[in-house]
Amino acid sequence: MVNTANISKELLLGILETVTDPEVPVLTINDLGILRDVQLKDDGSVEVFITPTYNGCPAMDMIATNIRLALAEHGIQNIKVTSVLSPAWTTDWMSEEGKRKLKEYGIAPPQYSSGHSRWPNDNVTCPHCNSQHTNLISEFGSTACKALYQCNDCQEPFDYFKCH
């Protein structure tokens, strides 16, 4: 058990920075905007606030478990993970660093703000060859947060992280 007096919010955020999304392992929960806040209580317990991406996202339970594990590795055991609904999660919270990492991983990052109402999103850039000559195959991809596209130039199918 660590001396709780040595725990700071910065330290906690540093630990939580290492927790990744099980479906998109290149992104941390901070990159995705899932991590909303962390509070250190007077009794030494820690409360982590996360927001679900999609209501039925099966990754959320695993993320909560991984948060507990990451903190437990640093000797913090009195942990509460609280899910907050409001304000509703949006891809607008995704960090620029997160978008860069997504593209590198082969998933096209959201290209518009969540208020963008046109669908299918035009000119989605292929993460492999950067062509904008792409077309929508399916509005629903391998997970709720993605749509399936195909590049007309390099012919590769790819996932597009939808604006939400």
Binding site: P52, Y54, N55, G56, C57, P58, F140, T143, A144
Partner: peptide, 10 residues
């Protein structure tokens, strides 16, 4: 099935 999952989450 994605829609199913959304509805289940709701």
């Amino acid at each position: 099935t994605n829609i199913s999952l959304d509805l289940l989450g709701q």
